[in-house]
């Protein structure tokens, strides 16, 4: 992915910043500029997520995505944040300890790198929340 394309959402990725619709009280991450329920009647404001959540489902990726080659095998999950929005993220955990329903918390980590340009992406990943 190009530098400028990553840069554009950097604040969202670093701070787990999404949006919240004031009309229907739904939360969105990644951010949306239009509420799919209220559409034109929606009233969106930015919202910084607490970041705690639960694993809805997961996999262990053996055949890595571009930029993740030296991390495989790695756990990847859909995380449902406590406010309600769901996102896809790598999980910083031993593949063996993964389970559906596991509580997780956000951690700031290197996401991947784009081979040819040598750029390293940082962002929010998730890790098991043992205190929760």
């Amino acid at each position: 992915m190009s530098v400028v394309r990553f840069w554009r959402n950097q604040v969202n990725r670093y701070n787990l910043e999404g949006t919240h619709c004031n009309s229907c009280d739904e939360y969105f991450y990644p951010p949306r500029s239009m509420c799919p329920t209220c559409r034109r009647e929606g009233e969106l404001e930015s919202h910084r997520f607490e970041g705690k959540g639960e694993i809805v489902t997961y996999t262990i990726i053996h055949s890595a995505a571009e930029g993740f080659e030296n991390q495989s095998p790695y756990p990847l999950a859909i995380v449902k944040l406590d406010e309600g929005a769901s996102l896809t993220s790598p999980i910083v955990a031993d593949p063996e300890e993964m389970y559906i329903g596991m509580r997780v918390k956000p951690v700031f980590r290197k996401l991947g790198e784009s081979g040819d340009k040598g750029m390293i992406y940082y962002g929010t990943k998730f890790a098991p929340d043992k205190n929760d």
Binding site: T59, F68, L87, T88, G112
Partner: peptide, 29 residues
């Protein structure tokens, strides 16, 4: 992989088989 959401799935390490694997894992569960 461009068939999925490149900015919020692909860049987070999702592959196409990975997405269907998560469907499978949930179906099994």
């Amino acid at each position: 992989a461009a068939a999925s959401d490149r900015e919020w799935e692909g860049i987070m390490g999702a592959t196409f088989p990975g997405l269907y694997a998560m469907i499978a894992k949930k179906h099994i569960h």
